[in-house]
Design a protein around this nucleic acid. Structure first.
Lengths: 405, 405
DNA sequence: AGTTTAAATTTAGACACTAAATCAAATAGC
DNA sequence: GCTATTTGATTTAGTGTCTAAATTTAAACT
């Protein structure tokens, strides 16, 4: 029943979409601008704009003749109504939940984060998530009705239809009825996606990967996951397992799913246990079991040879994975992101030195600048994509009343 | 200048495409069938069909009331005109060229193959290719004017726009003006693609991978290349290097770009040189330098332990690469194809035994049944995709006269 | 005030669709 | 052989959307 054939009304729908799309990423425009951009005639453009205004997706600006020609009849100026609604982007991790609120052009309007209680059961985790979302919405002064979609990133495999893949990895921690239970009273569309995939979306949207359509993002904090974008599209594989390097055989004496943070802690702890003379010991203090990645990176920055050796091992390890990505996917760029991404810059020399030896198509390597909002940013992007896809079927909640700047 | 907006005529174009597409993969249909399939009204369907007949893409069948109801006014029966033209699918390898001729529903109409002279220069290679294509067309009794598109598979990296990637591997052997020089007098659209990618298209179209939308095909003859399909789409990567495992680091004492055939020969020769007692020696005959893959597989089939050990090594090696594919791409199925694919069945037990140890998402593994037409079959598919995409812009050359069954 | 300029609107016409009535060609029953 | 029935094709009237061209509008300039 998937009819591809069309009626005359479909024509208008197509043109509504075309105009809306142009206006979304071009800001305020006159009718003439839109004629130029879409190839439609003036009569049509105006009709479509009036239609969009009526639907609430576009608003008309008053006065203001600052740009363009000063002569002739002043042009009506149309603008995508960025406050016709908002979306939520969530990063639901093992220990914490982060929520971003964004307007329809992606302007960030609110933010909140919270830790899960260690003993939390399903219902309690859901409650924590809901509470954090409420706080973020409150910060943005937005009503529930403004939310048009919710994107959620999870540390588990999710297939391309947004379904959690049972049996793969940590799904039981995340398969907690986020779609069916959490916001059923609001009826918000909830879109699930793997966290590394969202990190890739985030970087592709507003990170160092902006404009790069063949991209891999390694989400390397405690764990290590990879999000893959080819030709601007996210790759999932048949079970959403694409890029899930957790089971990679790397024969290094540590689990292959370990991210940068865990590796640094692991090897740092080992170095202390072996009694090596290193700055790490002083930085950590008396309780030598409390090594964290931060101390190792700090010691390395102060030229501590033991810490630097650890960083080199981590770098070689990353280079190994990146080289495989380069060989199989041939991305233009690989971005290292995640909690410790700020420190990851120290790994670049090692990685860049190793790569050409390991693959014939070495990608550029960069470090993310999105910090710990990388997944939530991608979640926002995912939700926005849904809204863009379904705009004409949705009703802008804030139509007419305006929902914040 | 990529206008997405539309005019009333675009509506008709959309419906022409929709109807044509339905008819292409459903065979002969009545107006009522098309109403059912497209959701359009009878008046529109008939108008569209008459339009398509006028353009030469569809023909009307006479008489024949075998199917459907016997009562009432007999329905007009429409059929996609499979002989409105043809396409060529070429496999241009290092040593040989293979050409397939196919009608627009993919029915094979002609075939020819030829070896390149060892001393051939660019112009001579082009001439051999042209001559082979002529022979295939002659076998199908088709005029030059019937050819609507040509797909060509090459053993070198090709990016997603069909451009050979300079500097990567064997490009100099294949960048011989196939698009600019070869058939410029006929004006045939020539589409270039990597051979492993075409193998993947071929398997996805008419091989064991039919219906599997997340698929990897390992083209493993003398060399080893991989074609990747995710969600039904071919992956290229930024330089067309995706799946080009030629530079993979596998630390086995042999080049990683080596395919099954070369590995068998390599290790078979080594076994003889080491003076091992093996059936291979007898099969090869007096000149022990002339080991070929065939002898090794034959000896293994006769339970020769040395040959079987070689097969296991090859199998483990393949499993290694497949496991990496499984980890990074998570395909549902991996198909082994290429010149020696018939023998590859002997490798399956080893591969299937190794895989679960190497990756958490082991794909199904199968052996291609397309034989040495695998690349040319994919080339046909590539050319057909072009014709389907551009059908309404093209003029069916055989319009009215019919160009073979 | 009149002219110029650029934009908006109106008007006429074209194209493509739907829905409903009518026409056409076959079978089935009497 | 005639009529009723069935099914498909065609015609007609009406609607929605677009373009192109003429007209109107609203400002700046002279």
């Amino acid at each position: 029943m998937d009819k591809t054939a069309t009626t005359p009304q479909a024509l208008r729908r197509t043109n509504l979409r075309a105009v809306l799309e142009v206006m979304r990423d071009a800001g305020a425009m006159t009718g003439t601008d839109l004629i130029e951009a879409t190839g439609l005639t003036r009569a049509t453009v105006i009709a479509v704009c009036d239609d969009l205004i009526r639907r609430g997706w576009v608003r008309e600006l008053e006065g203001d003749r600052s740009t363009g020609s000063q002569k002739g009849r002043p042009a009506r100026r149309f603008e995508f109504n960025a406050s016709a609604g908002c979306v939520l982007g969530l990063d639901v991790g093992m220990a914490t939940v982060t929520v971003l609120v964004a307007g329809l052009t992606g302007q960030m309007l609110g933010r909140a984060a919270e830790r899960f209680s260690k003993t939390a059961d399903e219902a309690e985790r859901r409650a924590t998530i809901a509470r954090t979302a409420e706080r973020a919405l409150a910060e943005a002064s937005l009503p529930h009705s403004a939310v048009l979609a919710v994107g959620i990133g999870l540390s588990t495999a999710v297939d391309r239809h947004g379904n959690i893949t049972k049996g793969l990895q940590l799904s039981e921690h995340f398969d907690i009825g986020l779609q069916t239970e959490l916001w059923k009273e609001h009826g918000w569309p909830v879109l699930l996606e793997n966290d590394a995939n969202l990190a890739a979306l985030g970087e592709h949207w507003r990170g160092v990967g902006a404009g790069v359509d063949d991209l891999a993002v390694m989400l390397a904090g405690e764990r290590l996951g990879t999000g893959l974008i080819e030709s601007g599209r996210l790759l999932h594989g048949s079970n959403g397992g694409a890029g899930e390097v957790g089971t990679l055989e790397l024969v290094d004496g540590v689990g292959s799913q370990d991210g940068i943070a865990r590796l640094a802690r692991h090897w740092g702890t080992a170095a202390l246990a072996e009694g090596k003379a290193t700055l790490i010991r002083e930085l950590v203090g008396p309780d030598t079991t409390r090594v964290s990645a931060r101390f190792v990176f700090e010691a390395a920055a102060k030229n501590d040879p033991v810490a630097q050796e650890i960083l080199e091992r981590i770098g070689r390890r990353m280079a190994r994975v990146i080289s495989l990505l380069g060989t199989f996917l041939n991305p233009e760029l690989v971005v290292i992101g995640g909690a410790v991404s700020a420190s990851a810059t120290a790994l670049l020399p090692t990685i860049n030195a190793e790569l050409p030896r390991l693959t014939g198509t070495p990608p550029r390597v960069a470090v993310s600048e999105l910090g710990d909002a990388i997944v939530a940013t991608g979640a926002v992007r995912l939700a926005l994509a849904y809204v863009e896809e379904n705009a004409l079927a949705l009703t802008p909640a804030g139509a007419g009343q305006g929902v914040g700047a």
